[in-house]
Design a binder for these strands. Sequence first.
DNA 1: GACTGCATTAATGCGTGCATTAAAAAGCTT
DNA 2: AAGCTTTTTAATGCACGCATTAATGCAGTC
Lengths: 225, 225
Amino acid sequence: MKKENLEEFAYNSIIKLILDNHYRPGDFLLESEITESLNLKSRTPVHHALGQLVAKGFLDKKNKKGCFIPALTPEDAEHVFFARENIEFQTAASAAIHASDEEIKQLQVIIQEEMETGESGNIVGYSSINETFHEHIAKIGKNKYLQQYCQHIFWRSNIYIFFYFYQFKATKINTEFKISPSQHIKIMEAITNRDADMAGKRMKQHVRETFEAIFRINTQKGGVL
Amino acid sequence: MKKENLEEFAYNSIIKLILDNHYRPGDFLLESEITESLNLKSRTPVHHALGQLVAKGFLDKKNKKGCFIPALTPEDAEHVFFARENIEFQTAASAAIHASDEEIKQLQVIIQEEMETGESGNIVGYSSINETFHEHIAKIGKNKYLQQYCQHIFWRSNIYIFFYFYQFKATKINTEFKISPSQHIKIMEAITNRDADMAGKRMKQHVRETFEAIFRINTQKGGVL
DNA sequence: GACTGCATTAATGCGTGCATTAAAAAGCTT
DNA sequence: AAGCTTTTTAATGCACGCATTAATGCAGTC
C-alpha cells in the first residue's frame, strides 16, 4: 500500500467528510475545525488539501473567507448532467472498443453486487457500488483524460443525487433501485457485444433519465433546488 | 481589477514560465528556484501553487521529490487528442445552439486577427490567437464544466503542438498557418448557421488533422517523441 | 429607529525554521 | 572494477506564530 503523507490524508478525509454529509451545499469548511476533527497538529496540510479541492472544482472559494460547497441550482444541475451525458457517452463507447474479457467479467460481478445491494435497501452502499460501475467503465475506456473528467463530473452530479435520495428516502428510492440496475445491464450487454454506438447511446439515455427523475422532483415545492 | 494574493500570483507566474519554455517535459520545477525567480520571500505560496497545478493535472508529482512537466509519449499524445476531439466536438455543437449574434461577431473578429497574424509569421502570437478561438467557442457553448475540461485538454495538447512548432520552425509552419485558419472558418460558418452536427463534425475533423500532422512528423527519426 | 463608521473578532495568508526522506555520492568489500 | 552499504546532501513536508483582512457587532449621530 502506498504511503500517504498528511496532505493526501487530509485531502481524502475531507472528501469523506463531505460524502458522509457532515456538510451541506453553501457551508464553509473551516480549516481549524477540520484540523481538529482529523486530529492533525497544524492547519498546513488541511489548507493545502482545500486548495487542491478548489483547483479541481469540487469546492468554491472566497478570498480570506474560506472554502465552501458550491450551491445547488437548477442551471448548474443542467450543466452538470449535460456534461456528464456527453463524457460518459464517450467513456462507454470507448469501453465497448477496448474492453478485455477479464474486464467484462469484472463488470458482471459489479452488477451482481449492485442488484444484491439494491434488494437490501442500503442507500449508502448502493451509491458506492453505482459509482464503482461508472468508474469501471471509464477505466475500461483506457483514456486517462476522459477518465479524469468522468470522475469529476460524476462526483459533482452525485451531490445532486445524494440530496435527492436524502430528501425522498421513503417514497421514490425503491423504484430507482429497480430502474438503474436494469439500465446498467443493458449498457453492459452493449459493451460485451463490442457495440460502441449502442453502449454510448444507452449510457447517455441512462444519465438523462437519472437527471430527469431528480430534477423534476427537486424543483417541486419542498425540493432542495 | 481583482486583487490577487501571492498564491494566485505564483500559480499564474508558473504557468507563464512553462509556456515561455523555461522548462521542458520531464524537468523538475524546484520550489526554491521558482521562489527566487519570482522574487518571493518564502516557498509557501509556490508550494501551494504547485499543488494546485498537480491537482489540475498540468503537472505530475513524485513524493518528496517534486513536481515535473509530464513526459511526452506517443500513447499520451493519442489520449490527449482523442479526448480533445470529443470534448471539442461537444463544445462546438453546443456553441452552434447557444451562440448569440454578438458572440458570432466576436468569433469573426478573432478569425480576422488570426489570418493577419498567420501572414506575419509570428509563432507565439499565432498560438495565442488560436487558443483564443477554441476558448471562445467553449465559452459560447455556455457549459461551465465542458468549458473547464476543454481548457485543460487544450492546454495539454498545446505542449505537443508547441514542441512540434519549436522543432520544425522553418519547414512546416507556413502550411499549418494556412490550413488551420481555413478550417476555423468552416467551423465558424457551421456555428453561424446554427448547425450543431456540422459544427461538431468539423471541429472533430480539425483536431484530428492537427494531431495527425504533429504525430506523424514527431515520431519520425529526430522527433521529440 | 435606521444608518454610518469604528473597533473587535475570527478566519485565512504567509514567513521561518526544523523534520523527513529520496537520491546522489562516497566508501568499503570482494 | 563492480556491486553493495553507508553517509551526505538537497529537496519537500510540516508546525508554529504572526500578519492581514473580511465580516460582525456596537456606539454614536441624525
